Simulated scan of single mutants.
Amino acid sequence: MIRMLLVGYIMGIRSERRLCEEVHLNLAYRWFCRLDLTLPVPDHSTFSKNRHGRFRDSDLLRHLFETVVARCLEEGLASGQRLAADARIIAADANRQNSTPKSDWQSCSIDPIDAPRAVREYLDTLDDAAFGGASPVEPKFTSHSDPASQWTGARGGPAYFAYSTNDLIDTDNGVILDVEATRSIRQAEVGSVRTMIDRVNDTFGIAPERLIADTAYGTGAMLDWLDQQRGIAPHIPVFHCPSGDCEAICREGQVSP
């Protein structure tokens, strides 16, 4: 199954149903996935069942990712000295019509026993700095089906529910050293960079010399943490709020102080 997922990622096949069809018909894909002509291709539902079950409760995918990163370091494709960090917004599978204004959302009134999986996971991360505890500012809307997702208008168009995937990249050859998912607000994204830098240090013994990032990461606390506490030279523009009302900007869903 992992080989099939690799085919999907490399060939840009976003639908798992279509991926199964392509592997069924394409002999090269079958050979790569080690599927004999007489063997059936796994059903597309197998992916979601494993993702929400076996893989979700294990560190298999993290282990696979870190094994690839370790090989890149061993072969000299990454040095771990000059890093860049940024966040990408990923739209959540959540409908605006199935949401509640913040004034009507009371997490304490939810019974975890009767709640669906996504809601139970949200309740478990209310104090997590990457999700519920990332900011004291409440989102304008909360999704019923995926309350951990963030209502955001960061792209300048119509607002929608989303997550952020945060990447820590080695700039030598563009190798991604670590990834962390968060809500799409700046406090969580900035905090994820600290998490990733500490994690690659613990896992691979990497002590980077410098970090490149955009203005969103240029808060005083972040720059102090990089320079004074970790000895990392920050190549980051200083975040400045000339109006002094950063909380108001945060409430509009664009950035967070």
Score class of each variant (00 low, 15 high):
residue 212 I to K: 07
residue 45 S to M: 09
residue 150 Q to D: 11
residue 81 Q to E: 13
residue 148 A to N: 06
residue 228 Q to A: 15
residue 84 A to T: 00
residue 189 E to D: 03
residue 130 A to R: 07
residue 66 E to F: 03
residue 223 L to E: 04
residue 151 W to P: 01
residue 222 M to D: 05
residue 121 E to T: 09
residue 164 S to N: 15
residue 192 S to C: 08
residue 197 I to H: 02
residue 53 G to I: 11
residue 55 F to G: 04
residue 189 E to Q: 07
residue 172 D to H: 08
residue 110 I to A: 11
residue 223 L to R: 01
residue 46 T to R: 10
residue 191 G to S: 09
residue 190 V to L: 05
residue 114 D to C: 08
residue 120 R to Q: 15
residue 28 A to M: 06
residue 125 T to W: 03
residue 136 P to R: 10
residue 68 V to G: 06
residue 164 S to T: 14
residue 56 R to S: 14
residue 43 D to M: 02
residue 245 D to I: 02
residue 117 R to C: 05
residue 235 H to Q: 12
residue 130 A to H: 09
residue 31 W to H: 13
residue 219 T to W: 14
residue 189 E to G: 00
residue 183 R to I: 10
residue 93 D to W: 06
residue 168 L to N: 03
residue 16 E to M: 12
residue 206 I to H: 03
residue 130 A to N: 10
residue 91 A to S: 14
residue 249 I to H: 05
residue 243 S to G: 15
residue 161 F to L: 08
residue 1 M to N: 02
residue 75 E to W: 14
residue 237 P to M: 00
residue 50 N to Q: 11
residue 104 D to V: 05
residue 222 M to H: 12
residue 100 T to I: 15
residue 21 E to W: 00
residue 9 Y to D: 10
residue 17 R to C: 01
residue 78 A to F: 04
residue 93 D to R: 04
residue 132 G to F: 01
residue 98 N to I: 05
residue 243 S to K: 04
residue 205 G to L: 07
residue 164 S to H: 08
residue 173 N to K: 13
residue 71 R to K: 12
residue 174 G to P: 04
residue 89 I to G: 06
residue 43 D to L: 07
residue 25 L to V: 09
residue 152 T to R: 04
residue 175 V to G: 00
residue 165 T to A: 12
residue 58 S to C: 03
residue 22 E to R: 03
residue 68 V to D: 06
residue 188 A to M: 03
residue 125 T to V: 05
residue 45 S to I: 07
residue 19 L to K: 05
residue 131 F to G: 02
residue 198 D to Y: 04
residue 175 V to F: 06
residue 14 R to L: 09
residue 154 A to T: 13
residue 239 F to D: 10
residue 36 D to R: 00
residue 163 Y to Q: 06
residue 57 D to S: 13
residue 12 G to N: 07
residue 208 P to R: 06
residue 41 V to F: 01
residue 41 V to D: 02
residue 54 R to A: 12
residue 218 G to H: 00
residue 35 L to W: 08
residue 94 A to V: 06
residue 244 G to K: 13
residue 101 P to M: 00
residue 167 D to A: 15
residue 99 S to I: 03
residue 82 R to Y: 14
residue 41 V to E: 05
residue 27 L to W: 06
residue 62 R to S: 14
residue 167 D to C: 10
residue 68 V to T: 07
residue 94 A to F: 06
residue 246 C to K: 03
residue 14 R to A: 13
residue 80 G to Q: 02
residue 23 V to R: 02
residue 237 P to E: 04
residue 5 L to C: 08
residue 128 D to C: 07
residue 44 H to E: 13
residue 72 C to Y: 12
